[in-house]
């Protein structure tokens, strides 16, 4: 018995000591830098929300962990932020949203007006879509079509007038999958988030 333990310790002591020392090193680095990492994430989200609702002075969470069914039985949670203007009035709502893109998950920040009737726009929080094609979901041509569109089921067309703002979005040429993914994200989230806010009496 002791012989086996001794053999085990002789063989693995360096690995055990190293694992302990490296673990300690990682814990120190994480303790020192994680507040800054969290702050960076908050700043980025606030910056994107501010770019969507320019009247906002500050953002406060009004609905935590709203469950959204994003299809195929997958439920995700999101926090809904209320944008408060400089005069203290509601300026709109923002929330994070996600869906599957062409290459990977697409994460968006979606903004809507205070009555939850018109879309204020969206910004891309994270995506790995194909450079030159799918990543044009970050560009103005596609994003502009959502700003001012009604909060209702959105459709996607391959051709049409991209300047006309309605519930029909014109796809990016050569990036139909990415365009569809963004429209699906809107269709999944808008209705379910609005329903939750209605339940809480935040919108009519």
């Amino acid at each position: 018995m002791f012989k086996a333990i001794r053999h085990y310790v002789q063989q693995s002591w360096l690995l055990l000591v190293s694992a302990f020392v490296f673990g300690l090193l990682l814990a120190l680095a994480n303790t020192a830098w994680s507040p800054r990492v969290q702050q960076n994430k908050k700043d980025k989200l606030n910056g994107l929300m501010k770019s969507l609702i320019t009247d906002a002075n500050r953002f406060e969470i009004v609905c935590e962990d709203v469950q959204v069914d994003i299809g195929r039985g997958k439920i995700v949670k999101t926090d809904v932020y209320k944008a408060v203007g400089a005069d203290g009035n509601d300026a709109g709502f923002c929330f994070r949203a996600e869906g599957m893109g062409f290459a990977d998950k697409i994460e968006l920040v979606i903004g809507v007006d205070a009555a939850f009737e018109r879309i204020a726009g969206y910004s891309v929080l994270a995506s790995n879509e194909t450079p030159g094609f799918g990543d044009r979901i970050k560009g103005d041509y596609f994003r502009r079509q959502f700003a001012g569109a009604p909060v209702m089921k959105l459709g996607l067309s391959k051709s049409g007038d991209a300047c006309k703002i309605d519930n029909e979005v014109i796809a990016i040429s050569g990036a139909t999958v990415s365009s569809t993914a963004v429209v699906n994200v809107f269709n999944n989230y808008l209705e379910q988030v609005k329903e939750r806010l209605k339940q809480k009496g935040l919108v009519r």
């Binding site: 063989q11 190293s18 694992a19």
Partner: peptide
Amino acid sequence: LKPHLRILMFTLTIATFVTIADLFLRAF
């Protein structure tokens, strides 16, 4: 280093410093 634990030790060492580099980049 024991020959049979060599690769394991390399990976452990490299993973530690990669995690530190990743944390640094995310923070700064």
